[in-house]
Simulated assay, not measured.
Amino acid sequence: MKIKTGIGIDIHRLEPGLDFWLGGIKLEHEKGCVAHSDGDVLIHAICDALLGAAGLDDIGVYFPDTDPAYKGIDSKILLKKVIDMIEDKGFAIGNIDCVVCLQRPKIKMRTLEMRECLSEIMGIDVDEITIKATTTEKLGFEGREEGVSAYVTVLIIKL
């Protein structure tokens, strides 16, 4: 059995009046992510981690922000395409560990809903996904509520 790991990181600027998508669900917040797609930093970081672990290029190569086909696209669609890509290479997901850095909104009460959404898309057990949230104690761009970042590690298994 061959196992591989990957890491993914995504960061987006926050601005008023935009929808705020995280982990495949829409959160109530006065700000949302500035992005070509829906700006779901968590899903984007998961995609990059999976692609890297499978030895593939990054998310921007497959879904470029210069392509109008991806303008406003639901990131859940991109994640499903990435799952198909890693499965085509003979890999299955072992587990996914995520950290989201943001001052607000508080997401602890919504992480199970995110995990359930993500597990359905990826076809894995909800217990194979962890999502933790942290503030930066009002330091940096996350602390000033100018942006949000997500950090993800994955383990994939060659079938």
Rank of each mutant, 00 (worst) to 15 (best):
S119M: 13
R115Y: 03
D125E: 13
P105R: 05
C117M: 14
N95Y: 11
V126W: 07
S119A: 15
K108W: 08
R110E: 12
L118T: 01
M122K: 03
Q103E: 15
V100G: 04
C98V: 10
R110S: 10
D127C: 04
D125N: 15
M122S: 08
P105K: 06
R115L: 04
I96G: 05
L102E: 12
C98M: 06
N95W: 10
T111P: 01
I96M: 03
E120K: 13
I124F: 09
D125C: 07
G123N: 08
D125I: 00
I121N: 01
E116S: 06
M109C: 00
C98F: 03
R110V: 06
R104I: 15
L102S: 14
R110Q: 13
D97P: 01
T111W: 03
D125G: 11
R110C: 05
G123E: 08
L118R: 01
I96S: 06
D127R: 08
I121P: 05
T111D: 01
I96T: 07
S119H: 07
M114R: 02
N95M: 09
I124N: 02
C117E: 15
L112D: 12
E116C: 02
E120P: 00
I96F: 04
R115D: 00
E113S: 11
C101I: 15
I121W: 08
I121Q: 08
E120M: 10
T111H: 00
I96D: 02
G123W: 02
Q103T: 13
